[in-house]
Amino acid sequence: MSPKKTSVQVEGRDLALSNLDKNLYPEFTKSEVIDYYVRMAPVMLPHLKDRPATRIRWPEGVHGGSFFEKNAPSYTPDWVRTARVPTPGSSTGRDHLDFIVVDDLPTLVWCANLAALELHVPQWRVGPRGKLHSPDLMVFDLDPGAPATIVDACEVARLLRDLLASDGLESYPKTSGKKGLHLYVPIKESSRTSEYAKEAAQRLESEHPGLVVSKMERRLRKGKIFVDWSQNNPAKTTVAPYSLRAADSPSISAPITWKELEACDGADRLRFTPDEALARVDEHGDLLAPLLDEDRPSL
């Protein structure tokens, strides 16, 4: 049976949306996924702009299997911006791939229609003529190893915030949309982000060895918070601010305030539905707007 299609126009671009009533989550349809991204676009798109996107697609919904998509598929519309990025060691055997860059609403809707529930981006940008810039963001992924929870991750986030502040760096938290937290640090473009982040994680571990681990081995993480500095490797990506996450019910990788983080007192806290995330933007605006400022400290 061929998919049911609906023709729409988004900012002057013609799109054919398919199977809008299909459940991509048990109680959340593709139509609702697209509606969420359209409504969140004003604050989300600036964080996607100029950053080549890795899409995680779930064509049959969150219980139907997924795949990572880096290269632009052959049916990509000619109006979708792409960027050629070196991919040494790629599983495809290709030295370069043409990534999609989600710079505008039609591209975001096109991705959502392809069941790209999650959008992941690097900490660096690509210029208008294809130049790959050095990172202008640094990120730390705080991942609890059971029985540790997000409550412990919040404690580590506060400790890491203070460590970064002692180096003159300001940090901004968001939830991972799953069990952990991300801490972002805006900086002037630098090739030292991975080196600095590793050193910072090691410093934190040396000061708090019972709570923090900076090494990658999973066996070391039990009851601790893994401060993953490795996402600053230029070849890696982090789930974008305001992206959906794939789970039994839709949750959002949502910015939070330090006050909310400090008040977190339960493992079920700091989880936001699409409607809650949208309401938070109405209340707070974009809590990660400082990541977009041009005035940034040097690393």
Rank of each mutant, 00 (worst) to 15 (best):
L105W: 09
K236R: 11
L97R: 15
K259D: 15
V151H: 00
E283S: 11
L45G: 12
M44D: 06
K179V: 09
C111N: 14
F272I: 07
R55C: 12
K198T: 06
S249Q: 13
P52T: 08
G93N: 09
L137K: 13
V102C: 15
A277L: 07
Y196T: 07
F140Y: 15
L114C: 10
L181M: 10
A197F: 01
K49N: 11
D78R: 13
D152C: 04
S31G: 14
N23L: 14
I225N: 05
R57T: 08
L24S: 03
V101A: 15
K131E: 15
G89T: 05
D265V: 03
P255D: 10
T54V: 14
Y242L: 03
M40P: 11
E276I: 02
K222W: 06
V121G: 10
L278W: 01
E60T: 09
R13I: 02
S206H: 01
Y37H: 11
D293T: 00
F272G: 05
D162C: 02
K222M: 10
A112Q: 10
I187E: 12
I225D: 04
E283D: 06
A153R: 04
P59R: 12
I150W: 00
L211E: 05
R125I: 04
L15V: 03
G285K: 00
R221S: 07
L97K: 15
A267I: 11
E155S: 05
A72I: 08
L17P: 01
N233V: 08
L288K: 04
I252N: 10
T149K: 08
D21N: 14
L169W: 02
G61T: 01
K178L: 10
V139T: 14
N233E: 15
D104G: 11
L20M: 09
L287T: 02
I56F: 09
I252Q: 12
D282G: 12
L159I: 00
G145R: 12
R245S: 12
T76E: 01
L105A: 14
S298V: 04
A165F: 04
H63C: 02
K174A: 08
A279S: 13
G266T: 04
A235S: 12
K215T: 15
P42T: 11
A116C: 13
R158V: 13
H47A: 07
E170M: 06
A201E: 12
T193P: 06
L108V: 09
V239Y: 00
V139R: 09
T175K: 05
T238G: 03
D275C: 02
A83L: 06
L105Q: 12
G145V: 07
S166W: 03
M216W: 01
G12Y: 00
K4N: 14
E189I: 00
L105V: 13
K131C: 08
P86A: 00
R125Q: 12
K224W: 03
T257H: 09
A16I: 02
M1S: 10
T238S: 12
